[in-house]
Design a protein around this nucleic acid. Structure first.
Length: 204
DNA sequence: GCCCAGGAGCATA
DNA sequence: TATGCTCATGGG
């Protein structure tokens, strides 16, 4: 499979997606009302924005972004969208705020774990992230790619389906990731776009 | 009523 | 190592 060509095809049909969406930047220069930045390439540089990616990555697990966004907005409105406030907040309070995203008790535990582990001064290794409760392969790669601008391939279910549609049969996460990694430029901007385009395309 | 959505942890064998 | 079960709301 010609992965680069398939990527160009997706880009031509859907246009730039501008992930990761940041609600704390929605409406600002280059960001639309939902926080996407399709016209510009954004490198996360502040603690607030980086932690919002971490939080969003947990909240969107097995849920639509629309519902995860409701939970994010609730946390933001109650000034809990930062590590220290989240750590000191009561479980029940967090759970009730993120309720629209589903699995709210589990995700409360996950958010507290990620808040404990979060350190804006250093980029964690993939192994470090995987030791945090609630962070699996996909969430770890999502965080490294979007919050820390590392050129990582995210090999989720949509990606597996995308390869399958192109005749490439892979089921194991690491196999899917390796297949694309060997055939696509090691470029963060393009790898962020690739994942966004695959998700957009599979939903269309 | 059913199934899926921008998954992961844990128990069991 | 590999399945199976659990977590839970919201929309089609």
């Amino acid at each position: 499979m010609n992965v680069k060509q398939a990527y160009q095809d997706l880009l031509g049909r859907h246009g730039r997606q501008g992930w990761w969406p940041l609600l704390t930047r929605a409406g600002q220069d280059g960001f639309d009302k939902d926080g996407y930045h399709p016209g510009t390439y954004d490198v996360i540089a502040t603690e607030q924005h980086r932690f919002e990616v971490y939080t969003g990555a947990i909240l969107t697990q097995n849920t639509t972004w629309e519902n995860a966004q409701k939970a994010l907005q609730a946390l933001q409105q109650h000034h809990l969208l930062n590590p220290s406030s989240l750590q000191s907040a009561e479980d029940d309070r967090i759970a009730s705020l993120i309720e629209p995203a589903g699995y709210y008790n589990q995700k409360t535990t996950y958010l507290q774990a990620i808040a404990d582990a979060f350190n804006n001064e250093t980029t964690p290794t993939r192994h470090d992230l995987l030791t945090v409760t609630g962070v699996g392969d996909e969430t770890a790669d999502t965080i490294l790619c979007y919050a820390h601008s590392e050129p990582r391939i995210i090999a989720d279910e949509y990606t597996r389906r995308w390869l399958d549609n192109h005749g490439v049969k892979r089921t194991d996460y690491d196999d899917i990731q390796a297949y694309i990694d060997q055939r696509f430029p090691r470029n963060t901007e393009q790898r962020q776009e690739l994942h966004a385009l695959i998700v957009t395309d599979q939903k269309a």
